[in-house]
Each structure stands twice: as C-alpha cells, then as structure tokens.
Design a protein around this nucleic acid. Sequence first.
DNA 1: TTATTATTTTTGGTTGACCAAAAAATTAAT
DNA 2: ATTAATTTTTTGGTCAACCAAAAATAATAA
Lengths: 218, 218
Amino acid sequence: MQSETIENYLKTIYHLSAGNSNIVNNKQLAEKLNVIPATVTESVKKLHELKLVIYEKSYGTRLTTSGSKMALNIVRRHRIWETYLANELGFGWDEVHEIAEELEHIKNDKLIKKLSEKLGHPNFDPHGDPIPDEKGKIQKSNVIKLSEVKIKSHYKIMGVTDHSTTFLKYLEKHQLIIGASITIKTIEEFDNSIILICQKKEVSISPKAAECIIVEKL
Amino acid sequence: MQSETIENYLKTIYHLSAGNSNIVNNKQLAEKLNVIPATVTESVKKLHELKLVIYEKSYGTRLTTSGSKMALNIVRRHRIWETYLANELGFGWDEVHEIAEELEHIKNDKLIKKLSEKLGHPNFDPHGDPIPDEKGKIQKSNVIKLSEVKIKSHYKIMGVTDHSTTFLKYLEKHQLIIGASITIKTIEEFDNSIILICQKKEVSISPKAAECIIVEKL
DNA sequence: TTATTATTTTTGGTTGACCAAAAAATTAAT
DNA sequence: ATTAATTTTTTGGTCAACCAAAAATAATAA
Ligand SMILES: [Mn+2]
Ligand SMILES: [Mn+2]
Ligand SMILES: [Mn+2]
Ligand SMILES: [Mn+2]
C-alpha cells in the first residue's frame, strides 16, 4: 500500500470517528474517499495487517494507537499548511483546504517544524480547528455549535465544521468570521432559524448553517 | 499514466536533452529515473501516444512543443520552491532539492504565482539555475564552467551543476558560494586542478569539481 | 417471525507502473 | 566482415488500487 493512500484512509477514519476511537463503517468511508465499499473492505484488511487499524468483519474499523498517531500527524500537517497558506501567502480561508489536501502528504518533518515556527506555533487553523502538536496533543476548548446557543447571550465565533467555498463565502458576506462577537436575538419557533446581531447588523441563520458554526460563550 | 509519473519523465527528458530537443536514450533515462530500460520503453511509448514526446524506436526520445512546455513548468515549480525554502524558511542550499522534488508536483498555479510574488519574481534558484517564467522563457547568461577559465582572470560564482549535499557542503566550507568573487592563480599542468583565491584564501579545486561550478567573467 | 432493505464481502475483472529474462537490433571492436 | 558488447525491445509476469456484479450477512419493517 502506498503511503498517500494509507494517509488518506487514516485521516478519514480519524475524522469519521470524531477524534475518538469510535467504530467507522465501510459505507461512510467509501463515500468520503470516493471509492466503492468493496474497495474499502480490501483496504481496511490491509491496514489491519499493518496494525494501523482494528478491522472487525461486517462490523467496522477503528484506529489503533499507532494509526491514531499517524492520523494526528497528517491532521497537523494539513492544518499547519492551511494556516501557512492563509497567513503567509494571503490565500482566503475558502481556498486553503483544497491545496492542503495535497501538501499534507509531503514527508519532511523539518519542513513542518519550520512552517510552525514561522507562524509562531499556532494552535488553530483558519477554520478554527485545533492543530495537534508534534506529539499529537490537541488543545481542547469548551465550544458549542451555534444551533445550541441560548437566547440573548453573547458568543464569539470560534470555527466552522464545513469547509466548502460556498459556505465560507456566505459567512464572509455577513462578516461571520472567526473572532467575531455575536448576540443571539431570537430563535424562530417555526423553523428554528437563529436571528443574531453581528457588527450591528441582523442576520438570520438557518438551522443547517447553525450546525456548522462553532461558538464560545462570552 | 499518472500525472506525477508523466511529470518526472518529462522533467528528466528535459534535463538530459540539456534544454534543447536533443535525443535522449533509454539507458540514460532508466538510470535517472531508477527503473530498468524495459520500463522506459513502455513509458515513452505512452508519452508518445499523449503527444508529449516523439519516440523513435531503437533510436531515442525528444520532447514535443507541448511536452517541452510542461517540462519547463515543472522546472519552474521546482526552482520556485527551492528558492522559497531557502529564502523564506531558512533551509540550506544543500537541503532544498530533495523537498522540492515532492513539492514540484503540487498542481495549483495560484500557489506558484503567490510564491513567486512573495520572492519578488526571482530569476535564479539557490543553485544559480535559471527559473523559467510563466511562459517558459529562460533568462540566458554567458556563463562558463570553472574548468574552462583562463589563468589570472577574475570570475564570479554563478551556480553549480551538482546538487548533492556532500558537494554543496564542501563548497560552503571554502566559502565558494554563489556571488563570491574568485581569482584564478594557476592551473596545475600535471592534473589540471585549479588553484584560485577566494576570500583571500587559496583553494585547490579538482577537475571533477571544476566541472560542476559555473562562473561568469568579471 | 418473516420479508424487505441496506450493508458488506466475495469473486472476477482492469489499469498503471514496475521487473526479470530472453530475443532482437544496434554499435563497437577485432 | 565477423565477432563481441551494448542497448533496446518483447514477453510474461507482480503488485497496488481500483470497479462491477453477485452472494452473503446484518439491520429494519411488516
Ligand atoms: Mn481542511
Ligand atoms: Mn481547516
Ligand atoms: Mn533541484
Ligand atoms: Mn536548483
């Protein structure tokens, strides 16, 4: 198995298991990796052989300790590159993900070290996602989804869980960028859409969009 | 054929044909690409199908116009990355080649544009090699090899044709870096080694090393 | 519980990129 | 001009990563 393929599988398993060692099933994996489930069955068998995952037939797959370490390293590389592209080269937060998908596979520890150093060892990427340190440790914070906020409270936008250009451009348009302070005005009983104040302007957020915005209580 | 494989073949054909459209033979290609000649035969047939090279059986291969364009683009990417790694991230000129071998395959025109911009659109990489512009045009200069210099003349070091760490470290030790001024003292009749003055110190350069140093007459 | 649906696995392919060994063609030496 | 050496090509493989279709298994609904 090629290292780039392995890395993409491990990273995807990591994301689908939400950082824990939750079981991931073939269908989800197949979807994310753009292959058919039959291919996933083959692949996870091989990853099991390599002791990077534990694959239990007809049940699912989870990362081993060493698989998890590798996954965290790839996530680190991805997020360091995203931060670098945004902060040093002036790319928009809607452009960096795609490029980082390729750059994350460059295997050179010194390179990531230098990038991180130049950036002042950042803990979060342009989407507010935490950057694991060299040992794979992730700084945790007590954040919630915008869909879980309480009325008339104040929050700070901390991140997004959707990286698509369309969504990020939409947020930018309403100045819903990371670090922005918002106040929840009302939550519509009819459809659960959230009316909030940002930069003195009123914005209505659909429940679907609210699921993708991460905030912290002020 | 995968794009990374294609790119490595085109780049290697370009280098072996010395920038012109000289014919390259299978054995040389096989050596540079670390494959056996049988593999090269297969590959160049496919590249011929793709109209990137003209392959004539039992004779050799040369780049077509579109193959040449692609090759120049890869060379541009490689050298921009080398310059970036050296100038912005502080890598040594002996370290950058290896990393650039991977980075050159990242396909994103805007990325190279941004890097070039940040560097002030450099025309030469850390080894003194010219960087083709977006159109593939190379700035030419009238440089010669150190092995061709005349006695008692003054020269400036403009580049190297060997990128190995051992060679570059050796040059650094004697301060034979790009931009350095040198004066040719004598050329030993016995073995053709060159005795030159650099930073007021006398250095003896073997004919083999002299073949790999590019200079310009002052 | 049985039938239906969804998911997973098996089986039998393909394609790209490689190799080893043998055959053919070219080039160099005698 | 022959012979010998080198280079190239052909032939018959492997291996990784994929797919399509069929079979098996698991989950859900009736
Ligand atoms: Mn991303
Ligand atoms: Mn991100
Ligand atoms: Mn190089
Ligand atoms: Mn170079």
